[in-house]
């Protein structure tokens, strides 16, 4: 069996299994259930696309290094978009974390605070 065939076979089986599991456990969209609120003093950060985006960017940069041509530092078509998205994504991340910190610190009074996000602008 050739390598490429093995690769595609694994890829294909993997995708089918993923889709199957995802289908089995997906919450069927029903009536919108209201989000329960945490007790006072507990702040949880909101969902974010940035982890996925930064991971993809890192993988692009890495792929650019792996697929470099002769006499190249890295493949520019992969590495440059990867690096750009990585840098921009990191800036976005830091600013979002900063904004959330400002909101929790300023939008609260004594007795309130941030438990899950007590850091001053550090990316979390």
């Amino acid at each position: 069996m050739s390598d490429t065939a093995v690769g595609f076979l694994i890829l294909g089986i993997g995708m089918l299994v993923v889709l199957g599991i995802v289908f089995a456990i997906s919450s069927r969209p029903g009536p919108a259930t209201p989000r329960p609120t945490p007790p006072p003093g507990v702040h949880l950060p909101p969902p974010s696309f940035l982890p996925v985006v930064l991971s993809v960017a890192g993988a692009l940069l890495g792929a650019g290094l792996a697929f470099r041509g002769e006499d190249q530092l890295a493949n520019p078509f992969l590495a440059i978009p990867g690096l750009l998205v990585l840098v921009l994504g990191a800036i976005w991340w830091v600013r979002a974390a900063n904004r959330e910190w400002q909101e929790t610190e300023h939008g609260s009074h004594a007795g309130h605070g941030s438990r899950g996000s007590h850091d001053d602008g550090a990316a979390h």
Partner: peptide
């Protein structure tokens, strides 16, 4: 309970969380 909340809420004890991470 309230005292506990306040204590944890402001990371009152020891080094700030972000600094531990760094």
């Amino acid at each position: 309970e309230e005292a506990a909340e306040a204590a944890i809420a402001h990371g009152a004890s020891g080094m700030p969380t972000a600094l531990v991470g760094m």
